[in-house]
Design a protein around this nucleic acid. Structure first.
Lengths: 138, 138
DNA sequence: GCTACCGTTGACGTTAACGTTAACCTCATC
DNA sequence: GATGAGGTTAACGTTAACGTCAACGGTAGC
């Protein structure tokens, strides 16, 4: 482990680490997903900001919109203003977990079907190589 | 049981069944995901077309693009032209399965973290209702 | 023949999530 | 003091995935 224990990061450091552009990172800020400190003009990202970025990118891999990712980030760290709405937050978390459960089912189904498709292909391949009819086998 | 055993469907039937618009269905055709028969001008969708629609919508729930869904649909039913490229197809299927595996991991992690977040919220809720300090509990 | 309903083909509008370009600042270095 | 490597804001461009008209065609019922 190495550079993970840093306390702050520049925008290009993060961009390079996660393989995205600085433009994207600024865009996430524009959309309220990040609120980095400033050193004069320049942005300074904390370790917490970096974690938020990780959450954002994971969200993207799962097909979440930035707004959904923002919601989820807020679920992790309810701020003081909202913490009296704890019950609402809990409901939101449960909703999202339900959605993820359905997504999980979709995912498993699709994986299984692809597995079957692969099996069929392998079979067809074995068959065609055993009995090369039209396309000559060189 | 019921209307699933039909052999053909109108565009509005499918739209209603899946809660999407006819415009969307025509768009999928425009993008090469569907190729319904015609009765004069009108489109007629077969049971197979309906299945493809199901795959498309599942793909969307998983965050796939229409192009990715089209690829996957082709994986299920390799056409004659491509069947001599069976090995390539198998590779594509394996790639996609690898992607889905990673997505599965992301999903599980996120679910687990949300579970923990929920637990923390519940704890905070119990604590604040045992000791109502600022916000009165009415 | 008129109306209602379902379908069609354009064609333009919209939103999300950035990409791209321009014009500028700031600091270190040659 | 010119140059280069990073950073900034502002503004327009782009792509995917449709939404939203507009204008029109077939047919079933009155």
């Amino acid at each position: 482990m190495g550079s993970n224990r840093k306390k702050s990061f520049s925008i290009s450091e993060l961009a390079k680490e996660f393989g995205i552009t600085t433009r994207a990172i600024r865009f996430y800020e524009e959309k309220g997903l990040l609120q980095p400190e400033r050193n004069g003009q320049a942005r300074i990202y904390s370790a917490a900001d970096r974690v938020k970025l990780i959450l954002i990118l994971r969200g993207k891999r799962l097909g979440l919109s930035l707004e959904e990712s923002r919601d989820i980030i807020e679920m992790y760290a309810p701020d003081q203003d909202n913490s009296h709405q704890l019950q609402k937050l809990i409901d939101k978390i449960r909703d999202k977990r339900e959605q993820l459960k359905e997504q999980l089912n979709d995912l498993k189904t699709m994986m299984q079907e692809l597995e079957e498709a692969e099996a069929r292909c392998l079979e067809a391949l074995a068959y065609s190589s055993a009995k090369p009819s039209k396309t000559a086998s060189r």
